[in-house]
Design a protein around this nucleic acid. Structure first.
Lengths: 129, 129
DNA sequence: TCCTTTCTACTACAACTGTAGTACGACATT
DNA sequence: AATGTCGTACTACAGTTGTAGTAGAAAGGA
């Protein structure tokens, strides 16, 4: 009935997904090109990763000739939702306010920025700063 | 020079640590009692988990007779710091403000609560609501 | 038509995690 | 002393992740 809730991915898997989120359907080679660049991973490694994500249903593959194209089956927002919720559950007793307090205390964010974020969201501006 | 930075723990490992954070030095049996209760885990499972955390240096053990007592070697704040930083890095392009925006958009927190958190921190009140 | 390059499929392998079972020594109880 | 109990140490085993190598088909070039 609701969204496919639990999508937890590793950092590397998220990096893979980011490529697909940004570019839409992408060939293995193109994904590999970006990741191999940034992280020195071999093409076969990327191919393996993509195959596994496909097996999990996180991405879907389409074949065209001998090439495979992948596209994301989960949205970035879904992954954020479930992973943030998991973190809050595990580390902040399920209380999101505690997480915000942590961010301020650890100087991850300045107190004044809270208001800034609030204002920007109030404006319906979901992006800029 | 700085704090032992990278402490990433699984949900279950965090649950273990929470016991140690709350109770200080605790015997295997006592940790097991709490966790076995909540999660239906066997004592030997908890013992294994603790041994592994000890090997990683996350906890330290002290032997008294045939019993082992464990205590946390990392603070909860350290774990929060590194895990939150990892999450922000992986999922919010390193921008903590984006995480806060996410919390508000996904209704994990009400816009008005941002101010509330801010006020309470300004008061130096690091706990209550 | 061969040789080379390109891709995918399959296999491999070590680390880490969740979850226990078993063996064995120390203690407590008859 | 004989037994049962408690607690630790060691072993096990499947699933996931990071990382790749190799084989074999296909496509492109010379």
């Amino acid at each position: 009935m609701s969204k496919r809730a639990d999508v937890t991915l590793s950092e590397l898997q998220i990096a893979l997904m980011r490529v697909l989120w940004r570019r839409g359907e992408t060939s293995t080679a193109d994904v590999a090109a970006e990741l191999a660049q940034d992280r020195g991973l071999k093409h076969t490694t990327i191919a393996t990763l993509l195959t596994r994500l496909e097996k999990r249903g996180v991405v879907a593959q389409r074949r065209d000739g001998r090439q495979l194209f992948y596209r994301a089956m989960v949205e970035e927002a879904d992954v954020r939702r479930s992973m943030v919720a998991d973190l809050i559950g595990a580390l902040f007793a399920g209380d999101a306010q505690e997480l915000v307090a942590h961010l301020v205390q650890e100087s991850e964010i300045a107190p004044g920025d809270l208001a800034k974020v609030k204002r920007r969201l109030a404006r319906g501006d979901h992006d800029a700063n």
